[in-house]
Design a protein around this nucleic acid. Structure first.
Length: 123
DNA sequence: GCACTGACGCGGG
DNA sequence: TCCCGCGCCAGTG
């Protein structure tokens, strides 16, 4: 049932720093499942990662915010990001964050930390 | 088991 | 750089 993946996603998502944005692929990578970016979006969309997940900090590889339908309020993701000091720009493809400036630059140490954590937790 | 879906990503033109 | 096609894979009916 790949429940392990969900537990991993929850841990990684909760580790995204305040005021930073992470990509689906980045989360999948840190979970040890680099090809499962779609599942990250799926899990978030269905609210399968529990309460308090900073879902607004997850954007796609180009920094585009998820479609309006993903949040109850059409601009909630934008407002939550801006409340954390993240600049959200308007583009023809939708709202976008500058990943160069506001993207989560996780380090190799971060990746190793998660790998050890998952092993220790047995997931 | 089968077909289809999707908050995705990448490589080629 | 911008599109577009294709690969990806857990869920769902």
């Amino acid at each position: 049932m790949m429940l392990d993946f969900y537990k991993r996603m929850e841990m990684v998502c909760r580790s995204i720093p305040w005021g930073k944005a992470a990509t689906y692929g980045q989360i999948a990578l840190l979970c040890g499942k680099p090809r499962n970016a779609r599942q990250v979006g799926y899990a978030l969309g269905r609210g399968r990662l529990g309460e308090g997940i900073p879902a607004h900090r997850i954007v796609n590889a180009r920094g585009i915010l998820s479609g309006a339908a993903a949040f109850d309020v059409y601009d909630l993701q934008k407002r939550l990001l801006e409340a954390e000091g993240v600049e959200v720009l308007e583009t023809k493809d939708g709202w976008q964050v500058n990943l160069k400036k506001d993207g989560w630059n996780h380090t190799l140490e971060d990746a190793l930390y998660f790998r050890e954590l998952f092993e220790k937790e047995g997931i």
